[in-house]
Simulated assay, not measured.
Amino acid sequence: MTGDLQPASAGPTDAELATEAAMTAAYERQVADHQRSSLVAAANAGDAVAELLRFHMEGAVCNWPFGDAEPVGKLAEALLRTARIESEVLECQPSAAEHRTSLGQLAAACVKFLDETSAGAPVDMPGQFDDIPEKELPY
């Protein structure tokens, strides 16, 4: 009977703890990236709304319907960022695969629009907004 006893577990190994710490750090970086991107998306959407309200109150600017804010481009970038965040967060949900495919198509259409209207400027480069000071973030 004494051969059936198993030794008590000594707890997680150093390798397991290191792996868990690395996964936690990666998750925290992803959350921070999503928060930064959502802040930029909200700012772009806010700029677009402000310009649309200005247009409602004042009308067209010379021969152009909108001023410098370019509301369609601002909304497209906000939509692109939002779709990417939602798609990444839903990666672990197997039932959301079809929705993620639709988000991917929407994001691709936004990228195409932004590429065509940006006169060669790169669209949404990773790390582009990493320099937002922590004090300006809403968390």
Results as ranks from 00 to 15, higher is better:
E58H: 08
A69D: 11
D14V: 13
A97G: 04
A119I: 02
A25Q: 08
I132E: 13
V61P: 02
L79F: 03
A97R: 15
S95V: 15
T117N: 13
D124W: 14
E98V: 09
V49N: 01
L106E: 09
A119Q: 11
D115H: 10
L75V: 15
A26Q: 13
A121Q: 14
A25K: 08
K112S: 11
D115Q: 15
V31S: 02
D115S: 14
G120N: 06
V31W: 03
A41C: 03
D33L: 12
F113H: 03
E88P: 02
E88D: 13
W64D: 04
E51A: 09
R36H: 03
R100T: 01
P133W: 05
A107T: 09
G46A: 12
C62W: 14
A10D: 09
A10Q: 12
V111C: 00
V40A: 10
R29F: 10
A22R: 00
L52F: 06
L103W: 01
P71Q: 14
S95H: 14
E136G: 10
V61S: 14
T101D: 04
Q105I: 02
A83I: 07
D124Y: 14
Q105C: 00
L90K: 04
H56K: 12
G120K: 05
S9M: 10
P65L: 07
L106P: 02
A119D: 12
P7W: 00
G3D: 08
R81N: 01
D130R: 06
V123Y: 11
Q35F: 11
A97K: 15
G11S: 09
P138Q: 14
L5S: 07
Q30M: 15
S9L: 13
E88L: 06
A18D: 07
E28V: 00
Q6A: 14
H34D: 15
E20C: 08
T19L: 11
E77D: 10
P7M: 05
A43W: 15
A50E: 14
D68N: 11
S87G: 04
C92E: 09
S118A: 15
R29T: 13
E70G: 00
Y139W: 03
L114N: 09
A18N: 04
E134Q: 15
E77P: 02
A60Y: 04
S37D: 10
D47L: 11
D130Q: 05
M23E: 12
A60Q: 09
P12H: 09
L5Y: 04
P126R: 06
G104F: 09
A26P: 07
A41L: 01
S87D: 07
P65A: 07
F129Y: 15
S9R: 13
P65V: 02
S87N: 08
Q30C: 06
C110G: 08
V72R: 08
H34P: 06
L80F: 07
E28L: 10
Q30D: 13
N44F: 05
A45S: 13
E88Q: 11
P7D: 08
V40L: 12
R100N: 01
E70Y: 01
A76K: 10
E20F: 06
A8F: 11
A26N: 13
F66I: 07
A32G: 05
S9Q: 14
H56V: 04
V111A: 01
A78K: 03
G46D: 07
A76P: 00
R81E: 02
V61G: 03
E58S: 04
E116F: 06
P133L: 05
G104P: 05
A15T: 11
